[in-house]
């Protein structure tokens, strides 16, 4: 694989009428990583994914997927869970998984065998011979995910995989994604739920308004915002506010503010010098959620 890139997209553009859904987006996804494409609803994530998989052609730009210049040519090595879930309700769970494998080049017999293994591993062994229409929404969603995995793809594309799942199944899914990465697969995860991205992703791209606004590791994204401090004075001491930085805001029983450029030491020294007591102090790196809100702002779409 070229410099170990599973996906290399340059200058992707897609227009629908006068609307530019994806505007010169570049993506370089290292093989073996979990890569998050984050963005608000309507940001152009799904359109970008569809171009990466060859469902629709870009108006401009180029995609190279798993060393193939045409994404379709790599189709048998890609697993895909679309945002809009879809299964034939009359099919049995095992058959549905085998069918999705067969679409990707896996023979039916092997597909059925692997389907049974995957269902067992996901705790759905009892539902193998149940028709999809009899399964709960969460179970059907897991079946569809297993269908995306059954042919052991080199690239797994998951569009909003956690939506509609309860917390237990969300944890199961996170474990499953990590398991796929451990197997050697590259995972392209499309979501607007930052908590999952922060826990799972090695690298992320934030897309808003059809444009890529950020690309890098989660740590790099979090480093974009300054550290935040939460200071709790001793009870009843309201005079401390005057000594804190200008952006300090009431937060619970204390104050939240951006850690000054010179650090906390000088501030703490001033507080002690003026005789103020410190009941608590914590310094935190802002989460991906904050970074996302700061980057996307109010013009995300």
């Amino acid at each position: 694989m070229n410099d170990a890139l599973a996906v290399c997209a340059t200058g992707l553009v897609k227009r629908f009428g006068g609307h530019v859904a994806v505007d010169h987006v570049d993506l370089a996804i290292p093989a073996g990583t979990i890569y998050g494409v984050l963005g608000p609803n309507g940001a152009g994530k799904t359109t970008a994914l569809r171009m990466l998989m060859g469902i629709i052609d870009p108006d401009e730009g180029h995609c190279r997927v798993l060393d193939h210049d045409r994404p379709r040519a790599a189709g048998d090595h890609i697993g895909y869970l679309p945002e809009e879930r879809g299964l034939y309700p009359g099919m049995k769970a095992r058959e549905a998984i085998a069918f999705m494998g067969a679409l990707r080049g896996l023979d039916w017999k092997t597909g059925r065998g692997r389907a049974a293994e995957l269902l067992d591993a996901a705790g759905l062994g009892h539902a193998a011979d149940q028709k999809i229409r009899k399964l709960s929404k969460g179970m059907a969603q897991l079946v569809q995910l297993l269908g995306a995995l059954v042919h052991r793809p080199a690239l797994l594309v998951l569009d909003e995989p956690f939506s509609g799942l309860d917390p237990v199944n969300q944890e199961r899914l996170e474990a499953l994604i990590r398991g796929e990465q451990a197997r050697g697969a590259t995972i392209l995860l499309c979501t607007h739920v930052m908590a999952h991205a922060q826990r799972l992703c090695d690298r992320i791209a934030i897309i808003a308004g059809g444009q890529r606004r950020f690309e890098g590791t989660v740590a790099e994204a979090r480093a974009l915002l300054p550290l935040r401090a939460h200071f709790v004075p001793k009870a009843g001491d309201d005079t401390v506010r005057a000594l804190l930085p200008a952006d300090a805001e009431r937060s619970g029983d204390g104050y939240a503010f951006t850690v000054p450029d010179e650090g906390m030491e000088a501030l703490l020294a001033r507080l002690i010098e003026k005789g103020h007591g410190v009941a608590g102090l914590s310094i935190e790196r802002p989460g991906l959620h904050d970074v996302f809100v700061a980057i996307v702002g109010g013009n995300g779409r």
Binding site: R50, M53, I55, G75, I78, Y80, P82, E84, R85, G86, L87, Y88, P89, M100, L103, R104, Q144, G147
Partner: peptide, 10 residues
Amino acid sequence: NKVIEILAAA
């Protein structure tokens, strides 16, 4: 059933 996207992708 929204299966068309699965088919179209594969």
